[in-house]
Design a binder for these strands. Structure first.
Length: 169
DNA sequence: TCAGTGATTAGG
DNA sequence: CTAATCACTGAG
């Protein structure tokens, strides 16, 4: 796997990584040992304890703990009683940030993405630079993308709610 | 438009 | 222990 994105790639600021992940490949090895590749088509950035839409704005808890680590790990959580959300932690240590994966070429919607991939709580904290079952690769394609406001965060207040931190092809 | 669904969290 | 909240989806 010559093109695996390394730790250094993910330790950059989330506002750089989130749009850059568009057109990159999300690679997953299933229980059957079969490797599948998907093109990332939609992402959202959640940036620091100041960002009222970011879970870390509520403080460091057992759930948000991994966001305080160095970039490159997975932040996976369960919401609305039925959906797992897949996030990539970015940035340096003690700067809680993450990118929500909202869409792939094969399906659209963060809950559908995790259902398709078989992502659950066992992926919490997984390291993308060393994991044998999930990682990312460069496709060599330079994305042409659009931006918009983030979905489902009406509670975040006017300022943070209106940040154009949603990116899609 | 809106119900379903259960982990997580703060508070007593 | 209780209760509120929730980075969503699918049916209608």
């Amino acid at each position: 796997m010559p093109d695996r994105l390394d730790k250094q790639y993910f330790t950059r600021d989330v506002l750089e990584v989130a749009p850059d992940l568009l057109s990159k490949l999300l690679v997953i090895r299933g229980n059957d040992n079969q490797v599948r590749r998907f093109v990332i088509t939609e992402t959202e950035a959640y940036r620091g304890s100041e960002d009222l839409a970011c879970h870390a704005s509520k403080g460091r808890t057992k759930r948000t703990e991994v966001m305080y680590h160095e970039g490159g790990r997975l932040y996976v959580y369960f919401v609305y009683g039925m959906h797992w959300m897949l996030n990539i932690v970015t940035g340096k240590e003690n700067d809680p940030q993450a990118v929500l994966i909202r869409g792939l070429d094969a399906c659209s919607g963060p809950g559908r993405v995790t259902r398709l991939l078989g992502i659950d709580r066992s992926f919490y904290g997984e390291d993308l630079s060393t994991s044998g079952r999930i990682w990312m690769e460069d496709s060599g394609i330079k994305p042409v993308y659009l931006t918009g406001t983030r979905i489902g965060i009406s509670y975040a207040g006017e300022y943070w709610k209106n940040k154009p931190w949603r990116y899609y092809l």
